[in-house]
Amino acid sequence: MMKEVIIAGFGGQGVMLMGQILAGAGMIEGKEVSWLPSYGPEMRGGTANCHVIVSEERIGSPFVTNPDVVVAMNLPSMDKFAPQLKEGGILIINSSLIKEEPDRQDIRVIKIPANELAGEVGSDRAANMVALGAVIEKVKIVEVDSILSSLKKNLPERHHKLIPLNEEALKKGMEAARE
């Protein structure tokens, strides 16, 4: 089993951290993982994205060209990465910010109002965790417990008080994806 994921959004939406938490969760489960960020000036203003691979086998290219899953936190990200999805792949879109429909019929689209749901648990900055909840609900990549352990590892100590909030956001995302 190998799952290739692209997570994309505005710089500041926490897409890099989301990818790191996902890759970290895979590592905790003893899987092969890689996390590759876009880097450079495009990180401010334009789209930031990262490529995450979680696999049972040795990972070849860490560069994802045909993802199984795309998480689009804003419209430019959907426009850029939806066309790259594998046939039958999963597109998770942040419907708080994306009103448009993707231009493909051969994929599964999951719309999650990530900002609103995050707002409900206390901070719309947790929109990334809502989206991540949707990912693990829809794609069997890693267990929710692994995500929570990974979250603890990835958040600096001074932000650990935010863990319960993030946990709630994650569960909100899972529920929303289930519906």
């Binding site: 790191q20 590592m27 993982v33 890689s34 590759l36 880097y39 860490p62």
Partner: peptide, 10 residues
């Protein structure tokens, strides 16, 4: 290369 430098792996 930039990929090796920027990539995260266990």
């Amino acid at each position: 290369d930039g990929m090796i430098g920027q990539m995260m792996e266990p």
